[in-house]
Amino acid sequence: MPEPISRNTVAKVARLARLDLTEAEVDRMTDQLAGMLEHFRDVDALDLSNVQPLNQPIPLTNVLRDDVEQPSLDRDEVLGNAPAAQDGRFRVPPIIGFEE
């Protein structure tokens, strides 16, 4: 298992997860995640070298439907739920140009 999780790592993970955590939240999260990860070391007792990972309990492969046209969701109903919409599209703030 790697080193205990650091405050810097927690702050970096928060950025990856697009979560603006407060300084106090980063502190608390560092303690709590460190505690959990420490607890998770119990699996170090297991020999997993020859074990295949299990991703899906009951694997089905290549589930495709027939390529037949079907009605999709009503556009107005979908956009009616959006915080901002314009001209039949979702409206978002500027994507580039404001990096600090």
Partner: peptide
């Protein structure tokens, strides 16, 4: 973007 809460900010 598509549903629920949005807190406005200067960029995406």
């Amino acid at each position: 973007v598509r549903y629920g809460l949005r807190v406005d900010a200067k960029d995406l």
